[in-house]
């Protein structure tokens, strides 16, 4: 029997798009349990919407019949599920030990200067959100960061300038 999902909400669920549903349905074939698909669905929705709004979360909850509270517990656990809107490009900035040794603090200060944002903030033009990330596994080319899906290595202030202007236009 299905789990009864009754938690009443003040917020209205968003209807998932056909694309989102198609991708979620595909995930259903890969996992023997719906709960696993819940986390996948959060990622799918984020891919399409940029982040997971309350409405989206409830939309998934309704579609998969997973309690919203459970989904919220999962969504807020993982680093890469954004429960707040993010900019067009998310900068995942590695500030772990090797990058730190190699001077990532200076690079971060430079980004902060350029974009006028600190960790967790989005630039005014909405182009960039800066988020710290644990070691990106490219320590021999530290400091490193990701912008969207792309990795950038051996960062210097100059490189940052180029990267920012490249992505701003994207």
């Amino acid at each position: 029997m299905s789990k009864e999902v009754i938690a009443s909400t003040a917020t209205k669920p968003r209807k998932l798009s056909a694309e989102e549903i198609a991708e979620i349905e595909h995930e259903m074939t890969l996992y023997p349990d719906k709960k696993a698909v819940g986390l996948e669905a959060l990622k799918i929705v984020q891919k399409h919407q940029g982040w997971v709004s309350d409405e989206s979360l409830l939309g998934i909850s309704k579609y998969l019949e997973i309690p919203a509270a459970d989904l919220e517990g999962v969504a807020t656990f993982f680093n890469l599920v954004y429960r707040q809107p993010v900019g067009k490009n998310v900068i995942l900035f590695c500030d772990s030990v090797s990058c730190w040794i190699m001077g990532c603090e200076n690079i971060k200060a430079h980004i902060k200067d350029k974009l006028d944002i600190d960790y967790g903030e989005t630039s005014k033009d909405g182009d960039f959100t800066l988020i710290p990330v644990p070691c990106l596994g490219d320590c021999d080319r530290a400091p490193v960061m990701m912008v969207g899906p792309d990795l950038h290595r051996n960062l210097t202030p100059e490189k940052i300038n180029t990267i920012i202007s490249d992505y701003s236009s994207k």
Binding site: K3, T9, A68, D70, F77
Partner: peptide, 24 residues
């Protein structure tokens, strides 16, 4: 019950509903 969960992580773990409302 379906409307109480643990949220967030490390020393920010939070025990509550996904949004305010009567525990059902």
């Amino acid at each position: 019950g379906t409307d109480l969960s643990v949220q967030a992580s490390h020393h920010h773990v939070y025990f509550g509903r996904h949004e305010e409302g009567t525990l059902e």
